[in-house]
Simulated scan of single mutants.
Amino acid sequence: MSAAPSRRPPLAQEITEELRREIASGRWAVGSRIPPEPQLIDRLGVSRGTLREAVKALAHAGLLEVRRGDGTYVRSTSEMAGTARRAYREYGEEQVFEVRFALDAQAARLAARAADDDDLAALRALLARRRVAWAEGDAEGWIAADWDFHLKVAEASGNPLLHELYGTFGDVFHGVKMKQRLRDGFDACRAAGHEDLVRAIAARDEDTAAATVLDNLRYCTTWMH
Score class of each variant (00 low, 15 high):
183 R>G: 08
122 A>T: 15
199 R>A: 13
159 N>G: 00
194 H>F: 07
199 R>V: 12
199 R>N: 13
103 L>I: 14
209 A>C: 12
181 R>Q: 13
202 A>T: 10
67 R>S: 04
208 T>D: 14
147 W>R: 11
213 V>Q: 12
31 G>M: 07
120 L>D: 10
79 E>R: 07
149 F>K: 10
56 K>M: 07
186 F>R: 00
18 E>M: 10
75 R>G: 00
173 F>P: 01
92 G>R: 14
187 D>K: 08
148 D>V: 04
68 R>L: 06
202 A>N: 03
100 R>N: 13
74 V>I: 00
163 H>W: 07
56 K>Q: 11
37 E>W: 03
49 G>Y: 05
224 M>F: 06
121 A>V: 13
52 R>W: 15
9 P>I: 15
166 Y>I: 04
214 L>W: 05
216 N>W: 06
84 A>Y: 00
132 V>A: 11
198 V>W: 02
89 R>T: 12
11 L>E: 04
185 G>C: 11
45 G>S: 02
4 A>N: 11
164 E>H: 09
25 S>P: 04
74 V>L: 02
94 E>K: 15
54 A>V: 03
81 A>D: 02
112 A>S: 05
164 E>R: 14
189 C>Q: 12
89 R>C: 08
126 L>W: 08
38 P>A: 05
133 A>M: 02
139 A>D: 10
222 T>V: 07
219 Y>Q: 09
32 S>I: 13
109 R>S: 04
69 G>T: 09
172 V>L: 02
224 M>N: 03
68 R>T: 05
209 A>E: 11
131 R>D: 09
209 A>T: 13
148 D>W: 03
170 G>A: 01
200 A>R: 04
176 V>H: 14
114 A>L: 06
155 E>M: 05
39 Q>Y: 09
131 R>A: 08
160 P>M: 02
168 T>H: 02
160 P>R: 01
129 R>Q: 14
56 K>T: 14
123 L>K: 03
88 Y>F: 09
131 R>S: 08
184 D>A: 07
116 D>I: 01
195 E>H: 14
108 A>F: 06
206 E>M: 11
148 D>P: 10
67 R>F: 02
138 D>E: 06
123 L>T: 03
146 D>L: 01
142 W>Q: 01
99 V>C: 08
13 Q>L: 13
18 E>L: 13
12 A>D: 03
155 E>S: 11
83 T>P: 05
37 E>M: 14
196 D>K: 01
95 Q>V: 15
40 L>E: 11
209 A>Q: 10
150 H>N: 13
40 L>F: 11
91 Y>N: 12
33 R>H: 03
221 T>F: 00
68 R>M: 02
5 P>S: 12
16 T>F: 09
155 E>R: 09
59 A>K: 09
84 A>C: 00
20 R>D: 10
132 V>I: 01
179 K>Y: 01
4 A>W: 11
165 L>P: 04
72 T>H: 12
197 L>S: 05
190 R>N: 14
222 T>C: 06
82 G>Y: 00
